[in-house]
């Protein structure tokens, strides 16, 4: 058995979890073992029912008594106890905040190794994984030993793909045995996103600004273009370190990973820490005065010129066509 922690919202599995399930199904096929899933929270049963399309034969719905909110140690404990009940060979999760966190708890509780952000696995003995270091600008081949191996699957690497033959999902419920200590850390409140604001991680268009923007005020030009395209503004680390923009807009290894249809990178030279945050974009359009900027080698399209001239001209052109 291979067990995958599937994240879901309102009965829909998250895209990153479908990526992880696709990765897990290929591993299960290579090992000749069945694919299982573990889900939490309200509507988990609805989400579990659709996992047959991804080859899941067994879904465990975890129902911790009296706890609806996300609680990392509780979820980790649940995964660890499911592992104890019917030892899987491998436990996987998406390389998301919760995926890394829940699996790290389970690994610590099981005293088992965990490899984060894997992009490939070669099962057998030794069991070898290829994983991302430095946010993906470097790869590491590593051995993962132990009776149970835990790994997270790097986001935006595996395309979600349904199984050739869908399976029937058998659903069972699991109530973990918890201690007081497991219950200490849990979400006690939420601050909803600003209504109408496009989130950077989900935006189809991101307009990026770097050192070349030159100061806090000049970002209004990028905001205007992003607004016209129903997109979001993203920035490089230089910009947040200078205090020009809030860190929540930072794209890169220590900021947000974006995957838009197009990333319009204005005045950004392209340090590797920034590139790993935007390389999942389907296309990169660079606007830069420097033809030799490192980001050029990652770009599909480029405009050579001063962003303060080019960006307002593009916005004006969009407005002109919209008025026609």
């Amino acid at each position: 058995m291979i067990l995958t922690f599937v994240e879901q919202a309102a009965g829909r599995p998250d895209r990153s979890s479908l990526e992880a399930l696709t990765f897990a199904r290929r591993l299960a096929a290579a090992q000749g073992v069945p694919l299982g899933a573990v889900l939490f929270g309200p509507a988990a049963e609805v989400a579990a029912a659709v996992l047959g399309a991804y080859g899941v034969v067994e879904a465990h719905l975890v129902e911790p008594a009296g706890l609806d909110a996300y609680a990392p140690a509780v979820w980790g404990r649940s995964v660890a106890q499911l592992v104890g009940a019917s030892p899987p060979t491998v436990v996987l999760a998406a390389g998301t905040d919760r995926g890394q966190e829940v699996l790290a708890y389970a690994a610590a509780m099981l005293d088992a190794p965990m490899a984060a952000n894997c992009i490939d696995v070669r099962p057998g003995e030794p069991f070898e994984v290829t994983r991302q270091r430095w946010g993906g600008s470097l790869l590491e081949k590593a051995r993962l030993d132990g009776p149970v191996r835990l790994l997270t699957v790097a986001e935006h690497v595996t395309q979600p793909e349904e199984a050739a033959v869908p399976t029937t999902v058998s659903i069972s419920r699991f109530t973990p045995t918890l201690s007081e200590a497991d219950l200490r850390v849990r979400v006690i409140g939420r601050v909803a996103p600003e209504p109408g604001k496009v989130s950077l991680a989900d935006a189809r268009v991101v307009v990026g600004g770097g050192r070349g923007v030159g100061g806090a005020e000049a970002f209004s030009e990028l905001e205007e273009l992003a607004g016209l395209l129903h997109g979001a503004v993203g920035v490089s680390r230089v910009v947040t370190s200078a205090g020009w923009r809030p860190h929540s807009q930072q794209v890169g290894q220590t900021g947000t990973r974006i995957a838009p249809d197009i990333y319009i990178a204005c005045g950004i030279s392209g340090a590797i820490q920034h590139i790993v945050g935007c390389k999942a974009a389907k296309a990169i359009l660079v606007i830069n005065t420097d033809r030799e900027a490192p980001i050029m080698s990652r770009a599909a399209y480029a405009v050579i010129g001063d962003l303060h001239t080019v960006v307002p001209a593009v916005s004006a052109e969009i407005r002109r066509r919209q008025a026609l």
């Binding site: 070898e128 590593a142 080698s297 770009a299 405009v303 010129g305 001063d306 001209a313």
Partner: peptide, 24 residues
């Protein structure tokens, strides 16, 4: 673990950007 065996640089599809033009 994980026990490092070796590192590698990812294969990147580096190409030449299509230049759409200059300035405004």
């Amino acid at each position: 673990g994980p026990e490092k065996i070796r590192l590698s640089l990812p294969a990147e599809s580096e190409g030449r950007a299509e230049i759409l033009g200059t300035g405004a």
